[in-house]
């Protein structure tokens, strides 16, 4: 491989290869990654190139078109986001203190966890709802593009080795109980109480290509939009707006912002630092 071609030529060729690959994926499999943020996408594509023992992105394109199983592997690379229970404890504390009182005013509560990945956040939110006496009247819609991730989310089983860290997060997030009461140990996994997910609907949903499917009082979508380019972010924020009740709440990741968005005026902050917004009337 000619590594030392001039930087610009290298860049242009690689960009072309990526564009062709994404076009091929879209036409052959229907998944549309063309609006994704390029830098992360490029890393993950190369990860798959090397994982397949290949040398170029064009080589990956050939394999993907001829081997659907390779597409599955790439899909997993492109969609699994590393997450944890009660990630950013101060966020979960704010959710309990400032959002749950709003939810409490509804007889029936609908929450959408968009891009739920392997489910750590669903169980975090469900535990908090349970402790505030709201879980019984809540339906959580947990969606992700990746069926394998959803399968893991459904199982409610997480690595046991993570539990000490999650326990600290839980306590800092304002947890009221002993964290260990929510799971039982099974070999090297912690299996969470199925009652926590009894009101949760797990479903495959692609934020890029699928539409609105319900109206929610709370949409939680943390560290998912960072993988999208600016235009695609706008589109997905539009989808959220259309999927929200009047005065619905939108919770984003700590370093995600509405500030540069066309949709900025549609929201007002509830807790600015935690990126929790409320849709204006």
């Amino acid at each position: 491989m000619a590594l030392r071609v001039s930087g610009d030529a290298h860049e242009a060729r690689e960009r072309l290869e990526i564009e062709l690959l994404l076009e091929a994926i879209q036409r052959a499999y229907g998944y549309d990654f063309r609006g994704y943020a390029v830098a992360s996408l490029r890393r993950r594509l190369w990860h798959r190139v090397y994982g397949e023992g290949l040398e170029t992105i064009s080589g990956l394109q050939e394999r993907i078109l001829h081997e659907p199983a390779c597409m599955d592997r790439l899909l997993r690379d492109l969609s699994i986001n590393v997450t944890e229970m009660f990630r950013d404890p101060s966020f979960h504390r704010a959710l309990r203190a400032h959002v749950f009182p709003l939810l409490r005013t509804y007889p029936f509560i609908r929450v959408w966890n968009a891009g739920c990945s392997t489910g750590e956040e669903i169980y975090s939110v469900a535990i908090a709802l349970h402790e505030e006496g709201l879980l019984e009247r809540t339906r959580i819609y947990a969606t992700d593009i990746d069926e394998a991730a959803l399968e893991r989310a459904r199982s409610g089983a997480f690595p046991l080795e993570r539990m000490q860290f999650y326990t600290e997060n839980y306590q800092r997030a304002g947890g009221k109980e002993s964290f260990s009461r929510y799971y039982s140990t099974d070999g090297n996994v912690a299996r969470f109480d199925p009652a926590l997910a009894a009101g949760t609907v797990f479903a495959q949903h692609n934020l890029v290509t699928d539409g609105s499917f319900n109206e929610f009082q709370l949409i939680v979508c943390r560290n998912v939009l960072i993988y999208f380019g600016a235009e695609l972010q706008e589109k997905v924020l539009g989808l959220f707006g259309a999927s929200m009740t009047r005065l619905g709440v939108l919770a984003l990741g700590r370093k995600e912002s509405l500030r540069h968005s066309r949709h900025a005026d549609e929201y007002e902050p509830i807790v600015e630092a935690e990126k929790i917004f409320r849709r204006r009337a």
Partner: peptide
């Protein structure tokens, strides 16, 4: 992670 795009930055939790 902080990543550079043309004209802007992106974040990731890879």
């Amino acid at each position: 992670h902080l990543l550079v795009e043309r004209g802007a930055v992106s974040l990731s939790v890879d």
